[in-house]
Amino acid sequence: MSDFWTVNIFFVGLLFLIGLYCLLAMKSLIKLLIGLELLAKGIMLALIATGFEKNTILTAQSLAISFIVVEVSVLATAMAMIINMYRHTKSLDIKNLTNLKG
């Protein structure tokens, strides 16, 4: 694999680290979604960089567009759930979501 691909995958690793950190350390529901978005950006970069490296950029773009559609659908649903949770608990803190706690 070329150096160009390796540099891109290096940054994919960094994006994954930041996204995972956000998912693990943040307590706001919206921040969790931002972490998910960052993971999605890493995946998108990996897809296109690999497509560029293998000279299959057209298929990589098709997959990237499918991925964006899935991402939007997931985020819209997650945001609707967040608004509903906020109406019940009056807070965005995940510590307050303890209704199912035994």
Binding site: A25, M26, K27, S28, L29, I30, K31, I82, I83, Y86, K90, S91, L92, D93, I94
Partner: peptide, 11 residues
């Protein structure tokens, strides 16, 4: 639609 200023203190 949701923001409250004192919300979600981070570690």
């Amino acid at each position: 639609l949701t923001e409250k200023k004192e919300d979600a203190k981070h570690n």
